[in-house]
Design a protein around this nucleic acid. Structure first.
Length: 279
DNA sequence: AATGTCATCAACCGCCAGATG
DNA sequence: CCATCTGGCGGTTGATGACAT
């Protein structure tokens, strides 16, 4: 197709950023906000590719960045999320306020991989991660389930059943389940694209027209979103495999409203679900 | 002290998907 | 519907510092 490069390469600075460049970028974004990365260098007077500016801002200069000292809790969460999501660093980072996908990716590749691939002692309970469903692999992996609903439902290999009532819509992907409890402070006003936590937990959208998970055996004509009401989708045999399939299908939806076996009606994010499944 | 090796992480690269005209 | 643009993502590289010999 012959795409044009994201920016002209000639005459651009490369490599490590200088403090001056950082200051220029910070002051420009604080004045004009994020976005328009392609035009940003030109307007800000930076001899950098727009992509490079974006990366520098997101991974290093944002005011809410938390750097270094990944806590044991964070580490455990990273391991669990990676078990569930694979190398989907942006999704994982979205559950760790202040952490960037790049940092988590680096931490995983340098620290955790080595630790987790070592022969585990009896005291170590972390299981090695499954082959990650990376983007590269998604190319070669069998295509995601088609719109044929029945094809979306693998044979039941349940670990335990959950009644899934709704797939959470994208507006709900932004609230944290465990972090910043009691805090409703937005982390950054412009992070609407990275699964960051922008808002306090919204109520369960029982009457909102949230898109629904497909149900096994539904006829395509039965639309659970009719009248904007959530229908009870019935019992599904639920396991990690299905969850991963749904994550693939509904990329970005990392939370579901679930009615567990015990009858608790709740909104669960995938991390909670992973925990639930491990029980 | 000099050299080699390893570990870390910022930055880059190429691909992809959604938006737009 | 199609071509192109744009932003985002994950994989990889390379510079740098720490540590070992």
């Amino acid at each position: 197709m012959g795409r044009s490069p994201c920016c002209a390469k000639e005459g651009l600075n490369r490599g490590a950023w200088t403090a001056i460049e950082d200051n220029i970028l910070i002051s420009y974004i604080s004045t004009h906000g994020e976005g328009k990365w392609r035009d940003l260098p030109k307007h800000a007077g930076l001899k950098r590719c727009g992509k490079s500016c974006r990366l520098r801002w997101l991974n290093y200069l944002r005011p809410d960045i938390k750097r270094g000292n990944i806590s044991p809790d964070e580490e455990e969460l990273i391991v669990r999320l990676h078990t569930l999501l694979g190398n989907r660093w942006s999704l994982i980072a979205g559950r760790l306020p202040g952490r960037t996908d790049n940092e988590i990716k680096n931490y995983w590749n340098t620290t955790l991989v080595k630790r987790l691939t070592k022969p585990t002692s009896p005291s170590q309970s972390s299981r090695p991660p499954p082959p990650p469903p990376s983007r590269a692999k998604r190319k070669t992996v069998p295509p995601p389930p088609s719109n044929n609903r029945s094809s979306r439902c693998p044979p039941p290999t349940a670990t335990r059943p959950i009644v899934l009532r709704a797939k959470l819509n994208k507006s709900l992907r932004t609230f944290p389940s465990q972090f910043s409890p009691g805090s409703s402070q937005p982390i950054t006003p412009n992070d609407n694209d990275r699964g960051q936590f922008l808002a306090p937990p919204p109520p369960i959208p029982q009457t909102e027209g949230a898109p629904l998970l497909p149900t096994c055996g539904d006829s395509p004509s039965e639309d659970n979103t009719r009248d904007g009401q959530l229908g009870d989708l019935g019992f599904l045999d639920f396991d990690e495999r299905m969850l991963e399939d749904w994550v693939t299908m509904y990329d970005g939806a990392d939370t579901v409203a679930a009615n567990t076996e015990e009858g608790k009606d709740s909104v669960l994010d995938l991390e909670s679900l992973a925990f639930f499944l491990e029980e």
